[in-house]
């Protein structure tokens, strides 16, 4: 994937819209709904639950905060307190493009 995209210039967590808005280095934009981010949370817990087929519907898709995690990822905290999901820039971009599953399969 295209290295020059990362890192983003601006990340806006729009709580009212329930959306994460990202402006990438080259000016490209991604809008990602909280529900998408929750669905594609790649923490070991969420992945394990998907494997055993436990539905994720009861969980909050409302985002409480976002912070930089090291130099190459974003950590998102949902309003139920779940904050184990860490989204590296390429993964976030893939989610925004609707290619999250392809990215995980790669």
């Amino acid at each position: 994937m295209n290295e020059v995209l990362y890192p983003p210039i601006l990340v806006t967590l729009d709580k009212a819209a329930g959306e994460l808005k990202i402006v990438w280095k080259g000016g490209e934009k991604s809008h990602i709904a909280g529900s998408e981010l929750r669905r594609y949370c790649a923490c070991s817990n969420c992945r394990a639950r998907k494997v055993v087929g436990v539905a994720l519907v009861t969980e909050s898709t409302e985002m409480r905060s976002a912070r930089l995690m090291g130099n190459n990822a974003l950590q998102i905290e949902f309003s139920d307190g779940h904050d184990r999901g860490i989204y590296p820039w390429p993964y976030l971009f893939a989610i925004g493009e609707g290619l999250a599953q392809e990215y995980l399969d790669e």
Binding site: P8, A66, L68, N71
Partner: peptide, 13 residues
């Protein structure tokens, strides 16, 4: 180095 992204959290419209 390239700058760290700015992170904004907005509550209302």
């Amino acid at each position: 180095g390239t700058a760290a992204p700015e992170i904004q959290i907005v509550d209302s419209l």
